[in-house]
């Protein structure tokens, strides 16, 4: 009797597992994605090998190293600790700037949204500073902060901060007033309103802001590393990796650096998406 139940139970597990694999195999989006990447690489390989297309010299594509050369270079590069050091440095900078931007930006945006006086005082200067591109802060930042590392961190922080704040503010201010009213009728205190309505209602915008902010952070880090990375006291990072490869004349290695940043950025935004998925169960339903 119990055996029968047990074995039935086992079969269901197997079925469940198989159907999960099945689902993956049936996932057309996945296959299309893989196919398009392979096609892209093939096209790249062919076009960079043959510098003459239909009798016409193609100067640009001819200079780009083919994927095979990039891969070859990559295999060699991954054995150098300096390459991984670059990953580590860039990641640390991105995360430091990003985390600080979240820690400061979310409460700041919330305060702007819920408190009129706070908004009246702080929103105007914020709006004046916001349009300044993060990279325009680099010289001032280098002068102001004692170390290059700190100035890179500061510029990275700015890149994410403005985006996060503006998203939090927008999200919190567009929460349907009916939710607040319904909660008030049922006896919610100010704190209840914040905790049960405003905060969860702003979560989607917080994650949108985080995803966009993360993208900007990578942009800023790479650029800042290129600008300041050559100094004696710091340096490194994927941005500097690309820059020094360029100076050293290895085009294949430049491409290795570029793809590395692509992968790093993808990894970062996937992580944000995944955390958002964990935090917002009501958005999983579609």
């Amino acid at each position: 009797m119990t055996d029968a139940i047990q074995s039935a139970h086992d079969t269901t597990i197997v079925v469940a597992k198989r159907s999960k694999l099945r689902k993956l195999a049936d996932n057309k989006t996945l296959w299309r994605g893989i196919a398009s990447i392979i096609l892209f690489i093939l096209f790249w390989e062919v076009s960079s090998q043959s510098k003459v297309w239909f009798g016409i010299q193609v100067p640009f594509i001819g200079k780009v190293p083919p994927p095979s050369a990039v891969l070859e270079n990559w295999v060699e590069v991954v054995q150098r600790p300096g390459y991984w050091q670059s990953w580590y440095l860039s990641f640390m900078r991105v995360f430091f700037g990003f985390i600080v931007a979240m820690i400061v930006g979310i409460p700041f945006g919330m305060a702007l949204a819920v408190n009129r006086y706070f908004r009246d005082i702080f929103f105007p200067p914020f709006e004046v500073l916001r349009p300044i591109p993060p990279l325009a802060w680099v010289p001032a930042s280098i002068i102001f902060w004692p170390t290059t590392e700190l100035s890179i961190a500061f510029v990275t922080f700015l890149g994410a901060f403005f985006t996060i704040v503006i998203n939090v503010l927008g999200g919190a201010r567009t929460i349907d007033v009916q939710y607040l009213r319904a909660a008030q009728s049922m006896g919610a205190s100010q704190w209840d309103l914040f905790r049960r309505i405003i905060l969860p209602g702003t979560l989607p915008s917080i994650f949108t802001g985080a995803a966009v902010g993360m993208g900007i952070t990578w942009e800023v880090v790479v650029a800042a590393e290129m600008i300041s990375g050559g100094g004696q006291q710091s340096g490194g990072g994927l941005g500097f990796f690309i820059w020094s490869s360029y100076m050293g004349g290895s085009l294949a290695q430049v491409v290795v650096g570029m793809i590395s940043i692509g992968i790093a950025g993808y990894f970062s935004s996937s992580m944000i998406r995944y955390i958002g998925y964990l935090f917002m169960p009501w958005r999983r339903i579609f």
Partner: peptide, 26 residues
């Protein structure tokens, strides 16, 4: 208690969580 013109069920709470919202708050 008001039942609103547009649905004011709180989207991030299940139907059950919505229903017990009042007593839970108080």
């Amino acid at each position: 208690m008001v039942v609103f013109q547009e649905s004011a069920l709180i989207p991030w709470q299940t139907a059950y969580q919505n229903v017990i919202f009042g007593p839970q708050l108080r």
